[in-house]
């Protein structure tokens, strides 16, 4: 297997394939909208997404701006995702809608599941492959390598993997695409990209 692309978004900035980005930064509270505008994307669904889905969407679009995934067919790509805090921010906003703002908000409720973001990515790419979302205490590269191996063995040709978390004003998004080829990737390699 080999890593085709990676994207890391954290307080340190936005990194694409290990390179810090000057054009796309994370300096303002509105950084998601800024990156969306700078990338000249035209995808109105973006505005409806919650913070978690927006982050995953942008991370993926950034990877796609430098790598092509067009050679994969619609069943080929498995989406393997995890985070620590599930849909924490949106959960709190949904609770607020019925405890303080008058009535439970349906547009918030539908985002109170972490795997909605994998749905958004599948819709964007029209990818019908396997999807799974785990809750873990920390990003665990060995765990992802095991999962990738499972899905390759079951027939997936690539895995879009992600650790996308948002809670208490701490946002983190690490995405990488792995293609099935001879050879292995190591936990150290993933750790290196993750730590940026």
């Amino acid at each position: 297997m080999k890593i085709l692309a990676s994207c890391k978004i954290s307080d340190q900035g936005i990194y694409l394939n290990g390179e810090v980005q000057q054009k796309y930064t994370k300096e303002t509270d509105n950084w998601k909208k800024d990156v969306y505008s700078k990338m000249k994307l035209d995808y109105p669904k973006f505005y409806k997404m919650d913070a978690l889905a927006k982050m995953a969407f942008l991370g993926f679009e950034l990877m796609e701006s430098v790598s092509s995934f067009e050679h994969f067919e619609d069943n080929d790509v498995a989406l393997l995702f995890a985070n620590r805090n599930s849909s924490y921010d949106t959960d709190l906003r949904f609770i607020e809608s019925y405890t303080e703002k008058g009535s439970p908000g349906p547009s918030l409720f539908v985002y109170t599941l972490p795997n909605i973001l994998t749905g958004e990515l599948a819709i964007r790419k029209k990818w019908f492959g396997e999807n799974i979302f785990f809750i873990q205490e920390n990003f665990d590269p060995e765990f992802f390598i095991d999962q990738i191996n499972f899905y390759f063995r079951k027939g997936s040709k690539a895995c879009l993997c992600g650790w996308v978390d948002s809670a208490n004003d701490k946002e983190e998004c690490f995405l990488f695409v792995v293609e099935k080829t001879d050879g292995e990737i190591t936990a150290e390699e993933l750790k290196k990209y993750y730590k940026q």
Partner: peptide
């Protein structure tokens, strides 16, 4: 067993 996304709508 397996899974497959609809790639259609979130809800």
């Amino acid at each position: 067993g397996s899974s497959s996304n609809d790639a259609n709508h979130i809800s």
